[in-house]
Write a protein that binds this DNA or RNA. Sequence first.
RNA 1: GCCGAAGUGGUGGAAUUGGUAGACACGCUAGACUUAGGAUCUAGUACCGCGAGGUGUGGAGGUUCAAGUCCUCUCUUCGGUACCA
Length: 879
Amino acid sequence: MEEHYNPVDVEPKWQKYWNKNHTFKVKEDKSKEKYYLLEMFPYPSGKIHMGHVRNYTIGDVVVRYKKMQGFNVIHPMGWDAFGMPAENAAIDNNTHPAAWTYENISAMRYQLKKMGFSYDWDREIATCRPEYYKWEQWLFLKMLEKDMAYRKESYVNWCEKCQTVLANEQVESDKCWRCSENVQQKKLWQWFFKITDYAEDLLAHCNKLPGWPDKVMRMQKNWIGKSSGSEVKFKIDGSDSNNDQDSDKNITVFTTRPDTLFGSTFMCLAPEHPLVEKLSRGTSQEKQVDEFVNKVSTQERSAEGIENCEKEGVFIGAYCINPANNEKIPIYTANFALMEYGTGAVMSVPAHDQRDFEFAKKYDLNIRVVIMPEDESLDIDNMTCAYSGRGVLVNSGEFNGLENTQAIDDITAWLENQDRGKKTINFRLRDWGISRQRYWGTPIPVIHCPDCGIVPVPEKDLPVTLPEGVDLLAKGGSPLATLDSFVNVDCPKCKREDAKRDTDTMDTFVESSWYFLRYCSPRYENGMFDPETVDYWMPVDQYIGGIEHAVMHLLYSRYFMRVLNTFGMVKFKEPFTKLLTQGMVCKETLTCPEHGFVFPEESEIKSDGQVLCTKCNAPVEVGRVIKMSKSKKNVINPNDLLEKYGADVTRLFCLFAAPPERDLEWNDDGVEGCNRFINRVWRLVGKYQDFLSDVKPYSESASKLSKNAKALYIKANQTIKKVTDDIEDNFHFNTAISSVMELVNALYAMEAVERELDFLDDEMKQVITFCVENILILLSPIVPHFSEELWERCGRKSSIINHPWPEYHTDALQTDEVIIVVQVNGKLRSKFTTDINSDDEAIKNTALSDKNVLKYTSGKHIRKIIVIRKKQTLVNIVV
RNA sequence: GCCGAAGUGGUGGAAUUGGUAGACACGCUAGACUUAGGAUCUAGUACCGCGAGGUGUGGAGGUUCAAGUCCUCUCUUCGGUACCA
């Protein structure tokens, strides 16, 4: 047998074998229990990165493990193929997004195949193919018909110089990433999905997904953000009637703190609020308001940007009336008031809200305390921050003296009586804006007719395919709008000849919200999916992907299943029964003063530890450890690992380096250790190869064995239990692997004692065969090529993946002796071994007479002796 | 800012129904074998201290016979933050 494991020969051999034997092809089989394992499909950026390798290795191990347990396992793979990078690459390299994408797909498919992953490649899909997005368009039309999709005006980032819409990612500190022009906010008509219709249901089911990590549920709950509070109407000063419902005469606010209503001394409106312009017009503040609104429109629109920028506002020249005390209070417009949340208006209570407090101090506005805590007396002159805790109402008319928690209900009821307010529920969740003014996405299948308005494209005309010959840098918004042959169309309804196609495409999160259904019947031509296959395979039993998708992608997918459920197309609401969110693969960034971010291979480490850029020899700054990403160039190319060590060592390392849910900080050392372990097993098998084929593995009771054989046999059974438990318990492969390493070490240690193989008696040979066989089986999901090869070399006939997962012998888990740990006052002072059946009294006595213990106990009064028999047996003597 | 995590030797990590902190590896040190070693095998390796012993799980308090694990506060880093996917 060769001295080393040689992946170059072995890995392709077994990949061909699995391929030839259709090992991972599956179809529906009602006689078997199904198992759907899904990994988040990749965006075809060009190269598989370490995050993918990690994600897909974890999934692959589970697939092989479940298959060995007898499940009918489906394991599909595909491509999340629409998206911005293709368009950017096309602009930068003068290619077509489709050509770029398909090239990347073949390169990445080739890499995945080299990793030996167990995909049923017959089910491969790419979302940019018309056969896929046709059905997305079909669903869009169905949602449009049921009023689940609608249009409204909303803002986008706009670069005036490039005449184009920018993604948040393309805005760098309020400037365009291409030309550094100031970004503005531009109002456009855009399509939305009414996800808010399902807010309550999505929230309720957060508590019914035991297979999901708590943290993800918590994040989703907070994202949906249900809060109960009150709507309160503030009459605009100067408008005539109290009861007038006209929105011109009232400002409606949403507040969770109606108990502080008497303390509301000013009002803040979102800069986009329609009343801002209306009320400021003709006042002396008009100019300042315009300037402020313009300024805000150049500030970043992301929540992050809004919250981090300085809180500013301007008086709009109008007042409204606080309905609690009929006080006239000024109306401001402020950059922190969000049109999307609540009603776009905030009643500001500076004494009891920190943001309002700072705002009031800045603009010298009135502050009034209305909640008095029990243990101190608030005085506005001495307050340095707002008080948001509990207390008793003051300065609140008839409500003075009431507990504020009670006042929440009482004041709301009082407002309700006067028709000035009501109890209400508000969600933070907003409807899902799906319009994108981009080329490389699913075209929105509607036609705008001057007479008929919005007309859906007839089903027979689907898909609306992406046209060729579009200028991606064309000015003015959607690239599709520049192509007359695409835009100009007859109205399907009235046949008018000057109708126009919608030129927006859909958010790529739409494709990823249902791709797992398409895998069930990927070539189905009569609908999104064949219902029978979906009935069999769905829901996904185990979903695996990055924690960065904890909210959006997963929430959108849950929403889509509810839509399909409402349409009667699927029987379930939750797409993913169990979820594993793997941590990210991270690495430090390298920045060259000349060349910006540089790849690790573009830098070199000098002996003095300095890192230099290979292009210009300038010292490179070693930055923070962050998620590996192409844009930051802090990536490791898995190809290099594959070439040097092969797929199995790469896989082993990904699993051994950290538990899956934890971030993995990349470190080049460590791979070497995995390689060493693989070869250690290789040599172990080589050593015993002469009898492994002929000797049957030991299978009888442990008690019949002699001492050394018994110890080994127990270790092997413990290893089977440990590996099985570690996989079942959240896929902790790192500890599973280390327990196999321990068994391998035990075999080496035994071999060192009984140096000559001739000394091995039949009993020992049987136990060794048992150990080796199980080492290979336990490792086979992790290092499948390697295990198959050695399995074959041990004379085993059938492929190892057809071998059932091993079971341990319960009578062979425990050794006869246990170690007793003795503490004095909680500090470890001594240890001794004793028979497992010793009683507490005997253990106490041995502990007390131990000479190491006596050092600490002699001459002292023993107050208490505690004996614990759990994982460890422990005695704690309290003196 | 908000929401969610993470923090343990020189390094990755192990140990959470509270019960020996550092399993298993990497790295390092020494030895063996070898023509050779970036192969392999063996031994050692948390820190301080000559030693007895003491200290130690980001930091500060607390509960307990016993705390990495539970409680309070706090610092740092990472992810998401609705047009990156």
